[in-house]
């Protein structure tokens, strides 16, 4: 009981501290940028956590939603000077539409197969963005039109300080959404699916619908974060925002490192991964291209080898695996 009382207090204190940190820093400085990106990726990890952590659907294609969000608002801003707030909402709608299109056939897939299908879907969108140059600008990338008189409505500012508070607000909202889902009816349904999907179905959980809702919420959040990212970076290309390594796997890695399915997971993961990556990049520069991604890979492998069963401490799933092993006669080699 005391833990439940303590948690909101701790979180509130955490938000206050995060809100006060920039006061001691140069608002145009490099540290502020790192903090911004850390907050953004904590949010992204949390969005992934809804699908990957709660429903145990390992998505390797979330970059699709992120890129859709980034491109939609930027293209609309370029063509019609539409506020990124509205463009972001349209991006969310498109991302949800894509999530539905993808989930209708794939939501029933589990484990490896879901991971493979989402991986292919993300790559398909990246290929389209690269070749549809009339709209997206193609592989050379796209830049957000610069507005000298920046404003909150156009989501453009002269320093990154407002971006920082925007990202912090987004993180707080997304964490609340995650907590609401986790502790609500949907969260219990998803947990039931995670523990034993067949049993969940038997007791009357509409597993398909639950997974669909989780996928749509996660997609919408990810897309809006894409818009925030676009308005923060001002320039991006398909391989960055639709990248498997740069977005999809990074989101998952952040959620997994800190503890998959937990509210604190992505916060811890992002606080660890992003500053480390940024420092490595600025220290080694372009002389060591690929170093940070090499480190990702190595960290992932190490974390799993240290505790192969620890990522999802679910005895039910293990039991399922062991009982399922007896029935593997129908496969053959050759």
């Amino acid at each position: 009981m005391t833990r439940q009382r303590l948690l909101p207090v701790l979180l509130f204190a955490g938000v206050i501290i995060l809100a006060l940190i920039p006061l001691g820093l140069d608002p145009r400085g490099y540290e502020m940028r790192i903090l911004c990106i850390t907050l953004l990726f904590a949010s992204l990890g949390q969005a992934w956590n809804i699908v990957g952590g709660l429903a145990n659907q390992i998505s390797l294609g979330h970059a699709a939603y992120f890129g859709i969000g980034a491109y939609t608002s930027t293209i609309l801003l370029k063509l019609f000077s539409l506020s990124p707030w509205l463009g972001g909402v349209i991006g969310m709608i498109l991302a949800v539409a894509f999530a539905l299109l993808l989930s209708l056939p794939t939501a029933r897939l589990k484990g490896h197969y879901y991971a493979l299908a989402t991986l292919a879907a993300g790559e398909a969108i990246r290929v389209i963005a690269n070749s549809w140059a009339d709209v997206t600008g193609g592989p050379v990338g796209i830049s957000v039109p610069y507005l000298p008189d920046g404003s909150l409505w156009m989501m453009q500012f002269s320093t990154v300080l407002p971006n920082y508070y925007l990202f912090l607000a987004a993180l707080v909202v997304i964490c609340l959404v995650f907590w609401k889902i986790k502790s609500g009816a949907l969260g219990y349904r998803l947990r039931a699916i995670k523990e034993n999907e067949q049993a969940a179905e038997v007791i009357g959980v509409d597993t398909y619908r639950s997974k669909l809702i989780a996928a749509c919420v996660s997609a919408a959040i990810t897309a809006f974060l894409g818009t925030l990212y676009a308005q923060f970076q001002f320039f991006f290309d398909p391989d960055t925002v639709f990248g498997v390594a740069t977005i999809s796997v990074k989101m998952a890695l952040i959620a997994i490192l800190g503890g998959v399915g937990r509210l604190s997971g992505p916060l811890v993961g992002a606080a660890f991964i992003i500053p480390m990556e940024e420092m490595a990049n600025s220290y080694f520069g372009s002389s060591a291209a690929g170093l940070s991604q090499f480190a990702y890979g190595a960290i992932l492998v190490l974390v799993i080898l240290l505790n192969p069963h620890g990522l999802t401490a679910l005895f039910a799933q293990l039991r399922d695996r062991f009982t399922g092993k007896g029935g593997s006669h129908d496969r053959s080699v050759a």
Partner: peptide, 22 residues
């Protein structure tokens, strides 16, 4: 669990690809 299997081999993918790049 499959989560561990997926991420171990995904981690290996990045380590090998970027190791070659380095």
């Amino acid at each position: 669990p499959q989560v561990s299997q997926i991420f171990l081999t995904v981690g290996l993918l990045f380590a090998l690809e970027n190791g070659a790049l380095l």
